[in-house]
Amino acid sequence: MKPALVTAIVGLAGLGLLVGAAGFGWPDPIILVQLRLPRTLLALLVGGGLGLSGAVLQGALRNPLADPGLLGIGGCAGLGAVIAFYWGISAVFAPALPLAGLFGAGLGCLVLLGAAGRAVSGASLILAGVALSAIASALLALALTAAPNPYALAEITFWLMGGLEDRSLLHLELAAPPILLGIAVLLRLGPGLDALALGEEVAASLGRPVGRTLRAMAVGVTLAVGAGAAVAGGIGFVGLVVPHLLRPFLGERPGALLGASALAGAALLLGADLAARALPLVLPLAQEPRLGVLTALLGAPFLIRIARRAVP
């Protein structure tokens, strides 16, 4: 499975360097390095972080609907990043953008951990996530009405639909370290998640208490999702779909899914971003379709299917 996914990533990333608004083929070196390279690597990293976060959240919370977007973590990260940008903080200190994304995602994770401790059924956790998303989007609108830019609310509509077009190497430098760190933290959680799947007491008796696993999950998801949302905007459903796509091949054991979920998330977002870039070249579109719109179109039907089967 993993060699196939790695092959797919290498192929898609290679294609990513060959496709863009300037046309198919090898571009001018400036375009290649300044535009296509950061865009391709960001799709890889953001997608990997989202796919892995989804697999860990679904395993740790034992909920097949868990996803950084549905649980509101992505929304909280966006809230932090938007405040840093529109209040001019990131213009003075560029790393404030991912840091604020991390701060927002971290707060979201804390709220969810509180809810997860008390949530009896899977549905109530998802409802807590829906509430968190609603609070984050309301606070976002509130923060923007106080922003000095009179067009901020209109601009943010596009940002919330997610996208990687016209990103620079600076965005890559800002987002890559936290995402890679988060992926490293989450990849080590396999044994803890497997133990948790046997029940909380068994996990504790195996020396992997549930509290420690959940805390490490919160740190990892915060790092992987927060920085990604700060540079890519609202991209949903990758974390939801990827583990479900992999289970038929790899089984139900959460620990077995982690590495493959990171790879498949990266491949999925690379593919979706490639589609977003290629569509205006083959169809008479005035502009690129938004990346978050494509992932939602792919993922939302999946959500309906999972919800039908999983939630009583």
Partner: peptide, 28 residues
């Protein structure tokens, strides 16, 4: 039309004319 940076960079005009930057941060 709406142009991406890549379109502009691949067929650069002699001169790019922009509005004076606003004094507030703008994603747009």
């Amino acid at each position: 039309a709406r142009l991406s940076l890549e379109t502009i960079a691949s067929h650069p005009p002699d001169l790019l004319v922009t509005a004076a930057a606003p004094d507030y941060p703008s994603l747009a």
